[in-house]
Amino acid sequence: MNALMERLGLRVPVIQAPMAGGPSTPELAAAVSEAGGLGSLGAAYLTAGQIGAAGEAVRALTARPFGINLFIPGPLPEVTTAEVEAAIAELAPLHTELGLPPPTLGERVREDFDAQFRAALEVRPAVFSFAFGRLGAARIAALRAAGILAVGTATGGVEARALAADGVDAIVVQGGAAGGHRGGWTHDELEDTLHLTRVAVWAVNVPVIAAGGLMDAADVRAALGAGASLAQCGTAFLRADEAGTSAPYRGALASAGPGDTTLTRAFSGRMARGLANRVTAGVRCPLPFPLQNALTRELRAAAARLGRADFLSLWAGEGAHRGREGTAAELLAGLWDG
């Protein structure tokens, strides 16, 4: 057991990655925490009120520590009318196929981060993690005053050093094999997870959490052997009974083979790894994040209702084909054999 495990009271050196947009549920977070790991709520797309309710739901199921994750907002991108029209034109035939009206880009494209952060503070999770940027000294100080650990996300050594200089308590280093959105904000090295872990451990003086392609106990042991204090696993929990992963999403994961993932901006405008499908193959001019994410929201919701995996954002890491079904506790046991 290392210092970070002791500080969080963990029995298993595994964090369930905060998978925003559906898979991350209070039931999943609570089940992982109850089984000895650290469950997480991916709250980036939740309102402040929803964050409070989700935190209460976790606490109703477990007294164990858990985490909340948010995305650091950047300036809203400026786009031309022609760029918006081109993005809409690409998606319009897909909407027609699903019986939807043409896509539109509303004025509200993301949640109020200040309100989200205040809600997270009020919940008082053991860990507040963040991606897509730097949190800032004032917010890190607020977390520390509330007894909450601040955990940033880096995709390379430069970002890891910047986060350490900011005073975070730990750093998630996201290797290139990781599923979902790339969590950095400068140069994404897309490195092998173990190599990136070793680089970060050498470069910073705070605990490092390895993420990306870690699907079984051997992977977790390798990450700890590279110097990580904990392993963060997301794809390994996508097919957990308690996850909010939709039926078509689960079906696509169950039939995934090696090499079936791709890096794409098609769904959100930000680079992310998921299973390839018609949208990843066909969208060529997405708007930047978060505009494209807002523009495709109705399409994704309809695809989930209609069982159309070919229109879903099927976020998954390179190890998706090694995933299993089961309860969160069973999947966690497969990630750590003690």
Rank of each mutant, 00 (worst) to 15 (best):
L105H: 01
A82I: 00
H95Y: 02
L91W: 06
G55I: 10
E56I: 14
F66G: 03
I51F: 01
E85K: 13
A57C: 13
V84K: 12
A86G: 10
E56K: 15
A53W: 04
R59A: 05
A63W: 12
P101T: 13
L91K: 06
Q50S: 02
Q50K: 01
P101F: 13
T80L: 10
V58K: 02
L98I: 10
T96Y: 01
T62A: 01
A57T: 09
I88Y: 06
A54H: 09
P102T: 06
L61Q: 15
E78P: 00
L100W: 09
E78M: 06
E85I: 04
E78D: 12
A53M: 09
L91T: 05
I88G: 01
P103D: 06
E83S: 13
I68E: 11
E90P: 01
T81R: 15
L76D: 15
P77C: 12
L105E: 06
P77L: 12
T81K: 14
T104C: 02
L76W: 12
E83L: 12
G67L: 14
A60F: 02
T96D: 09
A57K: 07
L76R: 15
L61A: 12
F71V: 00
T104L: 02
P102R: 00
G74W: 07
A89N: 04
A82G: 08
L105R: 04
E78I: 07
P103K: 01
I72F: 04
L100N: 08
E56N: 15
F66K: 10
L61G: 03
G99I: 00
P103I: 03
A57Y: 08
V58C: 01
E90R: 03
E85D: 14
Q50H: 00
V79I: 15
L100T: 09
A89I: 03
A92W: 07
E97Y: 05
P77Y: 13
H95D: 04
T96H: 04
A57D: 09
L94H: 10
L61C: 07
P73G: 06
H95A: 02
I51A: 05
R64C: 09
A86I: 11
A86R: 14
P93D: 01
P93Q: 00
P77M: 14
E97Q: 13
I88R: 15
L91N: 05
A87H: 04
A89D: 08
L94K: 08
L70Q: 05
P73L: 01
P101Q: 12
L76T: 12
A63I: 00
L61V: 00
E90L: 03
F71N: 07
L70V: 02
G52S: 10
E56L: 15
V58D: 01
L76G: 14
L98K: 06
R64N: 10
I68G: 11
P93I: 03
L100H: 08
I72K: 01
T96P: 00
L76P: 11
A53K: 05
I68Y: 10
G74E: 12
